[in-house]
Design a protein around this nucleic acid. Structure first.
Length: 458
DNA sequence: CTCGAAATAAACATTT
DNA sequence: AAAATGTTTATTTCGA
């Protein structure tokens, strides 16, 4: 199997990464996505990112923010500032193992995150996470620029720009960024650069979804290109919430999740719609399409039961029925797991598989973020387990079908009260800031109506 | 290549 | 009457 060759492949990746780096530094090239990363990460520093409000320069994310040079050349010189180590814990995505001192951290790093299939996969995932974020950031910056232009703000006004910029970037990247490409740069394997992934030109990966056919396109979770990623559950939530990436779940799974997350385990059609738009940026477009799909799924699958209610009807889930059809189809997600081991997409689907399996098991896919993060540790380990399991018996059909497992209700009384909202408002990027800042106090149901797809050509 | 699952479309029925 | 909800059927795509 190709799994075996991963390590080699990884090294190759490093190679590409490094070379890309040098290339960029010498040519001062632009569209290098790395630029962005670096930039945002360091933007918090007082130094300064002269945000050029140049109408031309914007289109592609290459904000001319340039940090003069990459000083801090490596953690080697600063033994205690390893990018993957901070606040006494391992910053490896999804890890968070506690390491009292740097030594134990190194030990941990070498034992837990050695060059193996899993680490490789996680690494790729991280790369893609960064890419996605970069794209998102680029978009938002453009948007900001347009806003400022519109409001006649002087381009070079360092004041106005930095503010929102930092806000956004810090919020967005806070997690992944710090894990991915910390201040120290070069030869840090983690620093992603050029598209190392299957796809060739950088944005392409993302482009697939955000550029052309925005909104629901005929591609399912198996999609090898716009697969999302992130090895951290909490991170996923934010990720899907803000990136127009199709979630790796079927409509049925999503609907079920929406319903199960509700306090009463039941939702009206409209509430389901709202959940979709609230949780996934991807479903803020082409509403007619996916809503139709939702309705279609509701009445097609026996697992969804309509219950007449005083005021209309609500939908509920028949777990038995749901689990029933799981076996043949995704018992342990054979398909996804398969992917993971077969194609170059390797790690991405893996993550998808992980999530899918978790989702199908009632594990609140997204709770950590909305509720502090008490269970983060557990989840992290859970993830690792899942990962290991998936990797090992890549097919054992032990279908853990333990239906009612982990009640987990109380996630957050999604109290959805039909509140008329302004379609205009609430656009992706903004919600990003919002959701991140104003905690669990959920934004009521935003009604991201499908504004005629335009947003593309960016 | 065939087959089934899932996505997407769309016609049509029913309820609000 | 219009919009929202539900049902169904058909077609397409993709992975097994």
């Amino acid at each position: 199997t190709e799994v075996g060759m991963i390590p080699t492949e990884l090294q190759q990746l490093w190679k590409e990464v490094t070379s890309a780096h040098s290339a960029e530094e010498t040519t001062g090239s632009n569209h290098s996505s790395l630029d962005l990363t670096t930039t945002c990460v360091s933007s918090s520093a007082p130094s300064k990112t002269s945000l050029i409000m140049n109408p031309h320069a914007s289109t592609n994310g290459q904000l001319s923010v340039h940090t003069p040079k990459r000083e801090s050349l490596s953690h080697e010189e600063h033994p205690h500032s390893h990018p993957l180590y901070g606040h006494g814990v391992c910053k490896w995505p999804g890890c968070e193992a506690v390491c009292e001192d740097f030594q134990s951290f190194l030990k941990h790093l070498n034992s837990e995150h050695a060059l193996d299939d899993r680490s490789t996969a996680q690494c790729r995932v991280q790369m893609q996470v960064v890419q996605q974020l970069e794209l998102q950031l680029a978009k938002d910056k453009e948007r900001l620029q347009a806003m400022m232009t519109h409001l006649h703000v002087k381009s070079t006004e360092p004041k106005a720009a930095p503010q929102p910029l930092n806000l956004v970037s810090s919020v967005t990247l806070s997690k992944s960024a710090s894990e991915a490409s910390p201040q120290s740069l070069p030869h840090t394997p983690t620093t992603p650069t050029a598209p190392i992934t299957p796809v060739t030109q950088g944005p392409s990966v993302i482009t697939t979804t955000s550029m052309h056919t925005v909104g629901p396109i005929r591609r399912r979770y198996s999609d090898k290109y716009n697969v999302p990623i992130s090895s951290d559950i909490a991170q996923n939530q934010e990720f899907y919430k803000n990136a127009e990436v199709r979630p790796p779940f079927t409509y049925a799974s999503l609907i079920r999740q929406a319903i199960l997350e509700s306090p009463e385990k039941q939702l009206t059609l409209n509430e389901i719609y709202n959940w979709f738009t609230r949780m996934f940026a991807y479903f803020r477009r082409n509403a007619a399409t996916w809503k139709n799909a939702v309705r279609h799924n509701l009445s097609l699958h026996k697992c969804f039961v309509r219950v007449e209610n005083v005021k209309g009807a609500v939908w509920t889930v028949d777990e038995v029925e749901f689990q029933k059809r799981r076996p043949q189809k995704i018992s342990g997600n054979p398909s996804l797991i398969k992917n993971m081991q077969s194609s170059h997409a390797y790690c991405t689907p893996l993550n998808a598989a992980l999530q899918a399996s978790m989702a199908e098991n009632s594990i609140p896919l997204y709770t950590t973020a909305s509720m502090g993060n008490p269970t983060l540790g557990n989840l992290a380990s859970a993830i690792r387990e899942e990962l290991n399991g998936a990797m090992e018996h890549t097919n054992s059909n032990e279908s853990d079908s333990s239906p009612g497992r982990s009640p987990m209700q109380a996630v957050h009384p999604v109290h959805v009260k039909e509140e008329p909202l302004d379609p205009e408002e609430a656009e992706g990027p903004l919600s990003l800031v919002t959701t991140a800042n104003h905690s669990p106090d959920f934004d009521h149901d935003r009604d991201y109506e499908d504004e005629p797809v335009n947003e593309d050509m960016e």
